[in-house]
Amino acid sequence: MKTVGAYGHAPLQRKNNVNGENRYKMTNELVVRTERLSKSYVADGIETPAVRGVNLKIRAGEFAALAGPSGSGKSTLLHLIGGLLRPTSGQVWIEQQALGGLTPDQLARLRLRRIGFVFQAYNLIPVLTALENTEFVMELQGVPEGQRRDRALELLSILEIAEYADRFPNKLSGGEQQRVAVARAVAARPALVLADEPTANLDSESGQKLMDLLRRLNHERGVTFLFASHDPRLLNQVERVIELHDGVIG
């Protein structure tokens, strides 16, 4: 199914480079699809809509961002797509899988296999080293120790923090912690990485560095990224910006 022009972007194709390695480009494969997705919060009997009737498609290999001011519903939408919140109405599909009917355990399994998360506050596990944090999701997946160690080291190397592999998070700068969080998110080869304000706590230089590295992962490894951010430094570098206002794409 071609979706050319539906969101103003040409679909990208996966190609092999001269070395025979995969060179990833955006394809027609839909990683995310939402249909009339809504989420309201009820507090003290008052219903507050956060996301209203959102239809969205994210293709494999995209480098996209949800943009909008605080309270526009970016994070809520990201959480709905990540299966962390249940929608009030509507449906989310990750690849071909509708999330609506899944049990909490099935949702957890889907997140584990198909979705990577990067959080604004890094959220590394403080008692694990950078390397162990990177291995963490792979460990949950049951990847053998040697294999996950190799892959984690490779990623830390790509993200230029291999020398800090044995450091605990409290011995890393914010930028370094966020890079470890990115390594953790992509290590398990998810179909999609959801990153909520990944540069918000970083200074300009660290933020820029992180974006460069994410871009590199997107280009070289075909990792699909969907950000939620109002940071112009980030929004300037994504291929597609999806504006949200009061929970509505506009």
Partner: peptide, 16 residues
């Protein structure tokens, strides 16, 4: 609590 929330978000099963 926050840390466990992250672990669950990353896909850890409740049993784990």
């Amino acid at each position: 609590t926050r840390e466990l929330g992250v672990v669950l978000a990353l896909g850890s099963s409740r049993r784990r």
